[in-house]
Design a protein around this nucleic acid. Structure first.
Lengths: 173, 173
DNA sequence: TCAAACTTTCAATAAAAATTGAAAGTTTAT
DNA sequence: ATAAACTTTCAATTTTTATTGAAAGTTTGA
């Protein structure tokens, strides 16, 4: 396979993966393009390679910078901005985990905390209330577990990350 | 807070969480409703509680059954079908992990495998090709890691799951 | 076999999300 | 201060995705 074809396929696949995980196809494609581009790209470069508009590039590149996985690069003597993707995949994963924890895990944990305090009432039997409280409690435990796992992975340095997980993957006697 | 209000809020929150992770809001809401309903519900019950059409209920309930987190329940002497959600959250998590691994992780791994074989060409410098190969290689390693982690968690029984992760969360000396 | 009681399908419609492109805004050099 | 070279915004539009509802299909009991 030719390099260009391989890049095209990667960009397409990464876009599909993104949309399955709630990231817009184009945002994932811009990310993919920056991942496989050794140097930094200008807005025009991205427009041309992905065949999308200027506004769209600007929107998605800024979103990726919010996630911390794309950086703006300024070149002396050049007025326009260039963008480059974080190339360390471990760091990319960590940054994404961090953002998703903040944006999605924490909000649902807040809701769980609020609704876990149901008061007894005339319209619901004590059994119904108890069943609900128990279900919410078990979801809370799971969410807490996921939150702690996420924050540990985020804090961990790469070596710890790898070695702990390698142990995890090959449980001994 | 009243039980009804708490359920309403849970259904809303679960729907929001779902859409952030690429699951349709309604599918997540049907799942949430079944999670907090002690007994099994009929199509009509779901239609009424979520204010959605019959076709929509049917579609989403079948999708949830595909994921393995909702079951059809037949009652002797009743012609219509009832649906109940898997109540064990650990099992719910396991089943979702299993499906996502199959539907999303494996396809991207296939793509990575295919594009990792780039041939040298006249239109690309050897440096460009090498940079690409290296990037894809590191994504492959990460994907392999994620895949192995997922399959280990899927195979693991609950006790192992909890205890391993609890150790992971409190690393000793 | 028929008809009642359901479930499923799917073309049409509605709703949501992404995209465009042109105008407005900003920065820099002269 | 002005103009050139950019970036950003946002209302309008397009595209995608979800939803409806009525018709078709299926199962069951008499």
């Amino acid at each position: 396979m030719q390099l260009d074809e391989a890049k095209r396929r990667f960009i397409e696949g990464w876009g599909t993966l993104g949309s399955a995980w709630g990231v817009s196809r184009t945002m994932a494609q811009v990310h993919a393009l920056l991942l496989v581009s050794p140097g930094a790209l200008s807005t025009e470069d991205i427009m041309e390679q992905l065949q999308i508009s200027r506004g769209n590039v600007n929107l998605n590149v800024r979103a990726l910078m919010d996630w911390g996985i794309v950086r703006k690069e300024l070149r002396p003597g050049e007025r326009r901005e260039f963008f480059s993707g974080e190339k360390d995949i471990h760091r990319v994963a960590t940054l994404i985990l961090q953002e998703r924890r903040k944006r999605e895990l924490q909000p649902i944990m807040r809701v769980l905390g609020e609704i876990s305090e149901v008061e007894p009432s005339a319209t619901a039997t004590p059994e119904e209330t108890a069943a609900f409280t128990q279900m919410i409690g078990s979801i809370q435990s799971f969410a807490n577990f996921a939150d702690r796992a996420a924050s540990t992975l985020i804090k961990a340095d790469e070596n710890w990350f790898l070695s702990t997980f390698m142990k995890l993957m090959r449980p001994g006697p």
